[in-house]
């Protein structure tokens, strides 16, 4: 039962580790960015899970509702999502420039070309 009570956290850890595995083990830069985004989403899930209160409702003042979920993680993650896509765009544009300079987005081939200079 303890596993089900912490289910959200376990899944968040699992997603983070899959993201980390993609970043470490794959050589393709676009795939690495996908792994980073997955890691990012897992952190979002972790934060929002922490804000949940049993029987709570959406944190918008409503007649007759006394228990609300914690609004603070929502604020932090809301801004983090938009900032996340902006920074991902910077990373992707760097990949495009790397492709123009080296003709490849595979990390190993980029290293090879660097060494052969």
């Amino acid at each position: 039962m303890r596993f089900l009570q912490l289910y959200n956290y376990e899944i968040a850890i699992f997603l983070a580790m899959v993201g980390l595995y993609i970043v470490v083990s794959r050589g393709n830069l676009v795939k690495k960015i996908a792994g980073l985004s997955m890691f990012q989403t897992s952190v979002f899930i972790l934060y929002i899970s922490m804000g949940v209160v049993d029987g709570g409702s959406v944190p918008i003042l409503t007649e007759g509702v006394t228990r609300y979920s914690n609004p603070l993680p929502h604020v932090l993650i809301l801004t983090a999502i938009v900032v996340g896509v902006a920074t991902t765009a910077v990373a992707l544009s760097l990949v495009i420039r790397i492709n123009e300079a080296y003709g490849t987005v595979e990390e190993d081939e980029v290293h090879q070309q660097d060494e052969s200079f």
Binding site: F44, G51, V52, G56, V58, I60, H74, V82
Partner: peptide, 10 residues
């Protein structure tokens, strides 16, 4: 998980 604003953005 009651985070309507976040769901919107995501």
């Amino acid at each position: 998980m009651d985070a309507a604003d976040v769901a919107f953005t995501e």
